[in-house]
Amino acid sequence: MREKINEEVSVVMYYSAKKRLAQPHTISWQNREYKVGKIGYHHPVWDGKTLHHIFELVDVGQTIWFRLNFDTSNLHWLLEAVSDGLPT
């Protein structure tokens, strides 16, 4: 079931110059740390002149899907939604 969260969360991000790849590494939410597994999709969204990066990903254990929004104007991370992959 997909659930809207819309909470700011702490995220550790890494950048590999070799692979020219930047992506979230760890998410802290509800006093738990989730190591990022597969990135399902990443796309940019413009809200006026503000660029947001949307990451949809699962944790390494493939138990939870997260939709993260990275606001490039203030470098804050918003957890928009989570899902366990089950029907509503």
Partner: peptide, 10 residues
């Protein structure tokens, strides 16, 4: 299919 790509759990 894009939603299934974005969310491996579905």
């Amino acid at each position: 299919i894009i939603e299934q790509q974005a969310n491996p759990l579905i």
